[in-house]
């Protein structure tokens, strides 16, 4: 008995001790990132930070490591926290909510619930078939991809916490309003009929309940590995192009072309952003460099939102459950919302 207890204690020590060590190592790496590259590139290799090449190379290495560290830390933390939530629990929380309050709850839960884009359709069917109103389901489906941890991490790392917070706030408001508008339009008959005919067999299982801390940590590690594996090529290419722009494109290059005074900048940014998808990680370092050369902040945010919230693969998937008219309304309402966010922030920021 005591031996068993000791074994449990050791196991626990290993788990939490390991987490502690990882946090310390992470913090050390993060704080040494800039001094290290400054020392290696400028003092040791003798590059000049004032030259095109010097500043581009420093930008590349410093940014790559910084973003990789931020992604690792935040995806791990978010995944562990999210392991306490599940789509099943979210649906139970949303059932029977009225519009308005329900839209706000759905948008908030969209951020907290672990949800991947390949679950968008089963999720949609599960919500609607269980009686969650269409507009509330839409608030969830919009908030979930848009306010995602990779986007938040990148915005925080590249532009600071104010921009990241603005993005989260704007994303939530947009999800609430767009879902509410879609709900008001009474478009239920434009949902493919089989969705309503789907009978939910059996007891939906809530698998978030019986996980141990060890399971949750393992999920966090796997999620970090799988996301990094998926996005690193985009990240490296994006930071590479960003570094080149950082080094060679003259200051204020975009002030005329895409500054706050150009009304076409936001629509063009959204038009480019919608077809792009998994490149969110690669696109942002590039956009950061463009912003440094005069691209307006609202345009940057609108671009980011259109990249993550609307994508061609997701629209193709949603066609399975939404008839064309509702699909067009969905894309139109979200795109219009993103446009207004961009234009608004260009006016205010």
């Amino acid at each position: 008995m005591t031996i068993e207890l000791q074994a449990v204690g050791r196991e626990r020590l290993r788990l939490w001790g390991g987490l502690g060590v990882a946090v310390v190592v992470w913090a050390l790496l993060y704080s040494l990132n800039k001094p290290f590259w400054d020392w290696l590139l400028f003092d040791w290799l003798g590059l000049d930070p004032q030259t095109h090449l010097g500043s581009a190379i420093e930008f590349f290495f410093y940014d790559t490591l910084k973003i990789a560290l931020l992604l690792t830390g935040i995806i791990f933390a978010v995944t562990v926290l999210r392991s306490f939530m599940s789509v099943e629990r979210t649906r139970a929380l949303l059932g029977g909510r009225r519009e308005g309050v329900g839209n706000v709850a759905a948008a908030g839960l969209g951020v907290l619930t672990p949800f991947c884009s390949c679950s968008a359709v089963p999720g949609f069917i599960g919500f609607v078939a269980a009686g969650v109103p269409l507009g509330i389901t839409m608030s969830f489906l919009i908030a979930s991809p848009m306010v995602n941890e990779v986007a938040i991490v990148l915005l925080y790392g590249l532009f600071g916490w104010k921009v990241a917070a603005t993005y989260v706030g704007a994303g939530l408001v947009l999800a609430v309003l767009a879902g509410w508008v879609i709900g008001r339009l009474r478009l239920e008959r434009h949902v493919e009929p089989f969705v309503f005919e789907t009978t939910l067999r059996g007891q939906p299982i809530d698998l978030s309940a019986k996980l141990s801390w060890e399971d949750r940590f393992a999920m966090g590690r796997e999620e970090v590995a799988s996301i990094l594996r998926k996005i690193w090529p985009y990240l490296v290419i994006g930071i590479g192009i960003g570094a080149a722009i950082h080094g060679w494109v003259p200051e204020d290059f975009f002030v005329d072309a895409a500054g706050p005074d150009n009304p076409l900048a936001v629509p063009v940014a959204v038009g480019i952003g919608v077809p792009l998808y998994s490149n969110a990680a690669g696109v942002l370092p590039l956009v950061e460099a463009l912003h440094a050369k005069g691209l307006a902040m609202g345009t940057v945010l609108a671009f980011m939102m259109s990249v993550v919230a609307l994508s061609v693969p997701e629209i193709v998937l949603l066609r399975r459950v939404l008839k064309p008219r509702l699909l067009v309304v969905f894309v139109g309402v979200v795109a219009a919302g993103i446009l207004s966010v961009g234009v608004l922030f260009n006016l205010v920021l």
Binding site: S86, V87, P122, F194, T199, R201, P204, L207
Partner: peptide, 25 residues
């Protein structure tokens, strides 16, 4: 999708053994 949803599964992938959902998401 209709068949996936009929198992009450909302987050994929899911594993079903003898018509019982044992893992999802």
């Amino acid at each position: 999708f209709a068949e996936i949803a009929s198992y009450g599964v909302m987050s994929t992938p899911a594993l079903v053994i003898d018509e019982q959902v044992v893992v999802s998401g």
